[in-house]
Design a protein around this nucleic acid. Sequence first.
DNA 1: ACAGCGATTCTCATTCTGCGGGAATACAGT
DNA 2: ACTGTATTCCCGCAGAATGAGAATCGCTGT
Lengths: 268, 268
Amino acid sequence: MAGQASFERGLRILSAVADAGDTTVEAVAAKLGIPVSSTYRYFRQLRELGFVQEDAGLYRPGRALLSLSGRHLTQSHLAEVGTAVLKDIVDTVGETAVMVIRVGTRAMCLRRVEPDKAIKYTFAVNELLPLSAGAGPRALLAWAPADVVRQVLDGGLPRFTDNTPTAEQLQSSLAQIRTSGWVVSRGELDPGAVSVAVPVMFDGEAVCALNVAGPESRCGSRTWLNNTLKTMNEAAENLAASLGTLAGQGTTRRYTTQEAGDDAAHSA
Amino acid sequence: MAGQASFERGLRILSAVADAGDTTVEAVAAKLGIPVSSTYRYFRQLRELGFVQEDAGLYRPGRALLSLSGRHLTQSHLAEVGTAVLKDIVDTVGETAVMVIRVGTRAMCLRRVEPDKAIKYTFAVNELLPLSAGAGPRALLAWAPADVVRQVLDGGLPRFTDNTPTAEQLQSSLAQIRTSGWVVSRGELDPGAVSVAVPVMFDGEAVCALNVAGPESRCGSRTWLNNTLKTMNEAAENLAASLGTLAGQGTTRRYTTQEAGDDAAHSA
DNA sequence: ACAGCGATTCTCATTCTGCGGGAATACAGT
DNA sequence: ACTGTATTCCCGCAGAATGAGAATCGCTGT
């Protein structure tokens, strides 16, 4: 009666993964009554198209799903949950923490939380910045698509201080950033400021970056850097996890938006 | 090379609609190079499954897409954008405005904005309430799935005041609410309080409800009710529109989350 | 090295679905 | 009645999807 049987099947499988958030091929096959062998075929394609991501036999929603529902929703979520995450960071680290996203070939600070101190780093919220200078922007650049990187490198890099990186320095640092998973910048935008950033990775993509910055006097030491990075990595992981539908095992704290639900009915 | 050709095709079509936000069958067919006749076949199925909604030849993302990306994201978005919407309402109406969502067989206040007045109605945020009493909850109930309605009716209705509706009153009011598109409650939860609510409809489903409440002394008149409803309906429409990816024609004010982007690259 | 095991991909004969150009229908506007 | 646009129908067949089972892959433990 319907036609398009295989398409519908595929969508059901996709929905199943989106609902479960963290499931196996067999589980889905069983739930939907589809032969395992066929289910694998669908999963493969879903994976290739980025709708699901796989990790050690466990499948969860992929980035393509996020873009399906629009940047709007994703950004709302980041802004919403991000505030709580940033507050936690500030509580632990005691320096300004911000969340930056990439907008085309620019970076933008989406959320900011400041510590209760006289001397602190202050970011402008909602203003477009170059991707080339500062820890947060550079973290975004490191995971940006190749064409964006090229545009930034070719577009002429603005210089703010003597420490602002040049095109060569920048280019060579990107690969290293991807390897280490974090960036530190010393006085690239403002003299005397130290800034650390980590990306929030979701299915291989940097959805946004967390950035902590403060005066060199307080943030210059290696131990400070290590402690801060530890806090930030934890935060980034939580934030990334909150993008996956609901997921399962709670490692550390989990940031969700209400989702109190547990009553009965879920209205498909 | 891939196999599952039709599935991939369907997903591409779905993505196209999600991206465009407001498009026609022909446009998608042209863009993807798929025969119109086949494209219609996919659209029909997508519509039947709720992934797209159609209105006068224009197609836009449907509710199933929202549930694909998880209640999380949707709720984050509502909470995020909702605050601005509520503020506008409070500015215009001068009474407490809240946003309530349905959680299983309960209602919950997700966001609250209060006017700067000594006497005002105060809602508890993040607490579960019955769906049976009060304007907001009842608006949600009116559009809830049948099994939820049954559960609520059969579950024994708590009584708060003499005006708290009984099961019979409740049941008969639901159809009327669906027709009129709004609810008013007078002293159902608290004596002397008037409460008005409208649902935020997205593709035939009540995603949440907006609720304005205040003392009878200020909110008793028919003109007040009319003016308030006008404001609320506008707000509800804006909120619903913000759930569609980005959509096009701006009627009144449009609430979006940043989405500044315009530079080049959008990284698929 | 080997066995054991679960996850994943491959194989392939058979079934039957999706395909798409074009006709038919529906419906609004004039 | 006529024009245009949106949508569904029609229909024979190429070829896609199917699924049981075998074959691989990648482990871990011994």
